[in-house]
């Protein structure tokens, strides 16, 4: 275990990057997910279709492939992203549809009569979604959203294959430098992931119970 305490700065560096990727991606992808979910229930058919196509394409492409596309296709088009920016873009493009689907399932859990009542007092589509549907969807949407964030936490590890120094990169470097303590090194990596994901899961549980009581 000395290998962990002895290399704490390196772990913390990777941990910091992982946390950074997670936070920035969530902050961008979550509003994007709301927009995509709204497009999918919009009265305008072209918005519905483009949102559905985007969702299906990204949701069914392995994240690594999204990174590869960015790494090889963008330079051909004459642009090159900084590695960290590239990772954020790839993670955002990939995660937003999962957020959107979680939000859409929450929207579908709100009885259709709520939206009909909203429209019948003259609220427009955006007002109906923002004032009536989303505030009610939020209760059932938090647990699945947290699941997406937990998956995103672990997906940030893919960025380590594309020159971003995440927790996994720290693990790789330490493992190759300390061949005799690989297990301890990897356990250390796992512990840092758990530091992020367990509180998230606990929050989802707590929220679910709270909603169950107030309902």
């Amino acid at each position: 275990m000395g290998v962990i305490s002895g290399n704490l700065p390196l772990y913390l560096q990777g941990f910091g990057t992982t946390l950074f990727l997670l936070l920035i991606t969530t902050v961008i992808a979550l509003p994007l997910g709301v927009v995509i979910a709204a497009m999918r229930i919009s009265p305008i058919a072209s918005l519905r279709t483009s949102a559905a196509v985007y969702t299906e394409v990204l949701r069914n492409t392995p994240l690594t492939l999204v990174f590869f596309f960015e790494a090889f296709v963008l330079p051909k088009l004459g642009t090159r992203l900084d590695f960290e920016v590239g990772a954020i873009v790839a993670l955002t493009l990939y995660t937003a549809p999962f957020f959107a689907e979680a939000i859409r399932s929450g929207i579908n859990s709100v009885p259709v009569g709520q939206a009909e009542a909203a429209r019948s007092i003259g609220l427009g589509f955006t007002q109906t979604v923002m004032l009536v549907v989303l505030p009610q969807a939020i209760r059932s949407v938090i647990p699945p959203l947290v699941n997406v964030i937990i998956a995103l936490t672990k997906n940030t590890s893919v960025a380590s294959g594309f020159f971003v120094f995440t927790l996994v990169s720290a693990g790789q470097r330490l493992a190759s430098a300390n061949g005799d303590q690989v297990i301890a090194v990897l356990v250390g990596v796992a512990v840092f992931y758990v530091i992020i994901t367990i509180p998230l899961g606990r929050f989802a549980d707590w929220f679910e119970k709270r909603v169950a009581v107030t309902r």
């Binding site: 009885p111 009542a117 009610q136």
Partner: peptide, 9 residues
Amino acid sequence: FQSFNLFAH
């Protein structure tokens, strides 16, 4: 409406 549809929140 038949089912009232008051805004539940």
